[in-house]
C-alpha cells in the first residue's frame, strides 16, 4: 500500500479551506499549520499565468526526515505514511532541517508535528479532512497500488508533477497540471 494525494492546480482556487479543515480536524494550534497554499504568478500584465497549490508533507518514499531522526521518532507507518511519535521525539530539529519542503514544524508542546495524511480517518475508509472539505473537489487521495483508487485514476488521466524531484525524495504528493 502506498498512499498518495493529487491536487488539481487547475481547479484549486486558493481558498485555504484545506488549511482550516486540517486545523480543526487535527487540533493544530492557531498559528501553525500542516498544510498551506502557494500561489505563483508568472508573466507581465495581461499575459499572465497563475498556479495554486495546496501543499503539505509529501510522504516521501525516500524520506530524509526519517533517515536523519536520531531516535526513530520519525518513522514510516502503514501505507508509506510518514509520522512522528510524540513521546519519542526530542525536538532536535534534524528532520525539519532535512525536509526540502518545510513540511514540519515544532508543535508548541515541543515535539515535531506534521501532516499525517489523516490516517485516523483513512483507517475508517474516509478521505483526509482537507480532501473531504475542498469546495472545488480538487484533491484526490488513495492507494497508488490500487489502480481503482481516486488518485491512481486521476494520475492516469492527467499530467502531473511533483515538487523538487531532483532532491530524490520520491514525493507522494502530486500536482495535476
Amino acid at each position: 500500500m502506498r498512499y498518495a494525494m493529487a491536487v488539481d492546480t487547475k481547479k484549486c482556487v486558493g481558498c485555504s479551506d484545506c488549511v482550516v479543515a486540517c486545523q480543526t480536524e487535527n487540533n493544530v494550534p492557531i498559528g501553525y499549520c500542516r498544510d498551506w497554499v502557494v500561489e505563483v504568478t508568472d508573466g507581465t500584465y495581461p499575459q499572465l499565468e497563475l498556479e495554486l497549490r495546496s501543499e503539505r508533507c509529501n510522504h516521501c518514499e525516500n524520506a530524509p526526515c526519517v533517515r536523519c531522526c536520531p531516535t526513530g521518532a520519525s518513522f514510516i507507518s502503514e501505507g508509506g505514511i510518514v509520522k512522528v511519535k510524540e513521546n519519542k521525539c526530542i525536538g532536535c530539529g534534524a528532520c525539519i532541517t532535512s525536509c526540502p519542503y518545510d513540511a514540519r514544524f515544532v508543535h508548541p508542546r515541543g515535539y515535531v508535528d506534521k501532516c499525517t495524511f489523516c490516517d485516523h480517518r483513512v483507517k475508517e475508509g474516509l478521505n483526509p479532512a482537507c480532501v473531504a472539505v475542498c469546495p472545488t473537489k480538487c484533491m484526490y487521495f488513495g492507494d497508488l497500488d490500487d489502480p481503482n483508487s481516486d488518485v491512481s485514476k486521476v494520475l492516469k488521466m492527467r499530467k502531473s508533477k511533483t515538487l523538487i524531484p531532483e532532491a530524490g525524495t520520491i514525493p507522494h504528493l502530486y500536482f495535476l497540471i
Partner: peptide, 13 residues
C-alpha cells in the same frame, strides 16, 4: 511572484 496565500508563518520555519 510566489507567495503563501494561506497565511502560513510557522515560527522557526
Amino acid at each position: 511572484e510566489e507567495i503563501i496565500v494561506s497565511g502560513r508563518s510557522n515560527p522557526l520555519i
